[in-house]
Design a protein around this nucleic acid. Sequence first.
DNA 1: GCCAACGTTGGC
DNA 2: GCCAACGTTGGC
Length: 170
Amino acid sequence: MTNACAVRKAANVARRYWLFKSEPETFSWDDLEAAPDRSTFWDGVRNYQARNLLRDEIKSSDGVLFYHSNAKPQVIVGTAVVVRPGSPDPSQFDARSKYFDPDSKADDPRWYGVTIRADRRFKTPVSLPVLRETPGLEEMMVIKKGARLSVQPVSAEAWKIIVGMGTKSA
DNA sequence: GCCAACGTTGGC
DNA sequence: GCCAACGTTGGC
């Protein structure tokens, strides 16, 4: 049991689940697996709704569905785990970064990110069309029209269904 | 490559 | 505070 997990169990806080979108050409599942400690700081989110989740809601040991957007097809390729909760996103203060935000103050950072570590690569990636036709997932945000949020909440029920499909051999 | 949906900006 | 214009996202 990880330390964060033990802390959470002691506090009796339920583990929660999320879906993170990434364009594979920018940062793919393979990139995450190849990263030091199979981990990365999830930077560059510049949407207030997603920011609020990253800053306030997403906690260590939470589960993450890693989703490839703008891919053919769009798929959930695996699961990751949150290993560090929200902290200020350094790229907002880096003038050379494309995520630079000149209006963000060092003593009052506007943008946050979390650190995730690759957990399980799906044997069977779960595509968007499959999500759409799977009973029990009708309420998922990612299948709703115009759902552009790059960090989305996922119910425990949906998590269970999707991980079940993804880890099963084809 | 298109374009609908959405979030943000900025003039008033 | 409204809302038109604009830029971006992301499915198709």
